[in-house]
């Protein structure tokens, strides 16, 4: 009986999800591999005042996905890494290009700390998920006899993220992966509003993390 219930809930959840389509592109510039003692960190780009920054929950999502599953890689938490390397990866001080790395690594305290951590790859993530379009209207009213909604809403979310992978030990960019996803959500309402949500950001996160794992592990 409980099986039937689970199946019904799963079918309903699938039916209630909006559609998401995505593309992943990868450019390799050097061979990659990770030993059992090597770690990577996923960092969000945090540029100057007023510029947009990558969502914190997207960074933690990619980090968790790369560090989980059967082919998990060793991942250091972003905040733990920033604290351990403080103040060299703060928005004011973080290296903006690989050319800045040798100078940072030239500082004995920093290179010792990186050695201690076992960091091999820095993965910079840039981008965001934005609502690009919305249409329709929905009205809800409450009366003595009851309450209800009527109308139809639709909106489109667009995720666009680009990652750059730095090899800390060679101070080189080893590759780039971009993940784009677009999805339309719907909310028809006849008395009760029924949200059909397209999980665009979540889809971009899981596909980017999967690609990142395969990129790092294949040394082609």
């Amino acid at each position: 009986m409980s099986c039937v219930r689970i199946l019904t809930v799963a079918t309903a959840a699938l039916a209630l999800a909006g559609c998401v389509s995505g593309t992943i592109e990868e450019v390799r510039e050097a061979a990659t591999s990770m030993g059992s003692d090597d770690y990577l960190v996923v960092l969000g780009k945090r540029p100057r005042p007023m510029n947009s920054e990558t969502e914190l929950n997207f960074i933690s999502c990619v980090s968790e996905n790369v560090g989980g599953g059967s082919d998990a890689l060793n991942v250091i938490d972003e905040q733990a890494f920033m604290d351990a390397m403080f103040p060299w990866f703060e928005p004011r001080t973080a290296p903006v290009k690989t050319d800045d790395l040798p100078e940072l690594m030239g500082q004995p305290l920093l290179s010792e700390r990186l050695e201690e951590i076992g960091l091999k790859y820095l993965v910079w993530v840039e981008g965001s998920t934005e609502r690009t379009d919305s249409e329709g209207s929905l009205t809800c009213s409450v009366a003595a006899t009851g309450a209800g909604c009527f109308g139809f809403l639709t909106w489109e979310n667009d995720s666009s993220y680009e990652t750059t992978i730095w090899d800390v030990r060679t101070s080189r960019v080893v590759g780039r992966i971009s993940s784009d996803a677009i999805g339309t959500s719907y909310m028809p309402a006849v008395v009760l509003p029924i949200p059909l949500i397209a999980r665009v950001k979540s889809s971009a996160c899981s596909s980017l993390a999967a690609q990142l794992k395969s990129f790092i592990q294949s040394d082609a």
Partner: peptide, 18 residues
């Protein structure tokens, strides 16, 4: 232990523009 001033200055200018 000093990082390149051009990078730091650029950030500083942006912060100080407020």
């Amino acid at each position: 232990m000093r990082e390149p001033h051009s990078r730091l200055d650029a950030y500083e200018n942006a912060v100080n523009s407020h």
